[in-house]
């Protein structure tokens, strides 16, 4: 098998908390605390979880927008987290990002032409002005915007159109991987569908890999190949899409699936209502981080942290989860059977 495009091993990012009289470090926010995953060429991996679980921090760490605390990030066989700035630069071209808010992520004082030309110039992807203009025009075609719109300013566009400009800017650097950090969350339903379709088309046309960070499970299911579920700085489950939605193997994934409101009035579904709120990442619980809200937690969960490992009862290969329940005999393991249909009422 060929090596993955992106390989992240035991990634940690702890943010220091400063306080007290001398402004010393008084604690840490354990935003990402030992996360490993990979993305193959042309593949979509979705990172899902609730606010504060560290999914955006993972995205920024992969992009090297800040130094990481521990672990390694390998892009196409080259380790990039300890690279000096000048050799990192050509690697940066290969990973681009699309942000959530299309209103604040475009410079209001730059015309669309200049927004799209900047990455092309920065990475020296055009030999002369004519080639640059041609490339910008082609980008507009790629994201289905009219070519003559290049002379306009960001404020002249609607939210969906701005998100197209954001996608075009990411494509300008001719990347292999695009990180979509909640890229469709701020858009209205009908516009969201347009952007989701565009991203899927582009993936087909250009062979892009996507790291799709989102909290919207229906969109994720629609467009991803594999899913990684995060809770409080850890990945608790990674699986191929169908395997995860049909037979979740972590209690948190199960609760997430059952909590999403589905547009089918009157359907009876199994509902698992989690109690309480997500604990603070400054002082995460011992053992399994989910044990404080888990409906199935037992003694071992409070003391011993479960590792992410392959689950034998999973529907498809490559399904891993971090849960002690799978060490119990099948009749005492509520997640041994496929519960997806009951949870989603399909």
């Amino acid at each position: 098998m060929s090596s993955p495009l992106l390989d992240v091993q035991d990634l940690k990012k702890h943010f220091p908390i400063r306080g007290g009289f001398f402004g010393g470090v008084t604690g840490h926010v354990y935003a990402v605390d030992g996360v490993s995953f990979h993305i193959n060429k042309g593949e979509t991996l979705s990172l899902v979880g609730e606010s504060g679980c560290g999914k955006s921090t993972v995205g920024k760490a992969v992009l090297q927008l800040f130094g990481i605390t521990d672990g390694q990030v390998v892009l196409d066989g080259k380790r990039i987290d300890d690279m000096p700035a000048n050799s990192l630069r050509p690697m940066r071209r290969r990973m681009q990002v699309v942000f959530q808010d299309p209103f604040s992520s475009l410079n209001p004082r730059m015309r669309v032409r200049d927004i799209l030309a900047e990455p092309i110039r920065n990475f020296g992807l055009a030999r002369n002005g004519a080639e640059l203009t041609a490339k910008v025009a082609k980008l507009m075609d790629t994201v289905r915007l009219p070519r003559d719109a290049v002379n306009r300013w960001p404020h002249e566009f609607s939210g969906g159109q701005r998100q197209r400009i954001g996608i075009a800017r990411a494509l300008a650097a001719e990347p292999d991987l695009i990180i979509c950090d909640e890229a469709v969350s701020a858009l209205d339903v009908s516009v969201k569908a347009q952007i989701v379709n565009l991203l899927q088309d582009l993936q087909g046309e250009l062979g892009l890999a996507l790291l799709f960070i989102s909290h919207d499970l229906a969109i994720v299911e629609h467009m991803t190949h594999r899913v990684a579920v995060m809770y409080l700085g850890k990945i608790v489950e990674v699986a191929p899409k169908r395997s995860l939605f049909a037979a979740p193997k972590h209690p948190y994934t199960e609760a997430l699936l059952s909590a999403v409101p589905v547009p089918m009035p009157g359907k009876q579904r199994e509902r698992i209502l989690l109690k309480g709120d997500v604990p603070s990442p400054i002082n995460p619980p011992t053992g399994c981080r989910f044990h404080t809200r888990c409906p199935y937690a037992f003694d071992r969960c409070r003391t011993e942290e479960p590792p992410l490992r392959p689950i034998p009862t999973a529907l498809e290969a490559g399904h891993t989860a971090a849960c002690h329940l799978h060490d119990l005999p099948a009749d005492r393991n509520p997640l041994a059977v496929a519960k997806g249909q009951a949870l989603l009422a399909v």
Binding site: V189, A218, E221, L257
Partner: peptide
């Protein structure tokens, strides 16, 4: 209604 992906579509 048509522009919303349905949860459970992969099943």
């Amino acid at each position: 209604l048509g522009s919303m992906p349905k949860l459970g579509s992969s099943l």
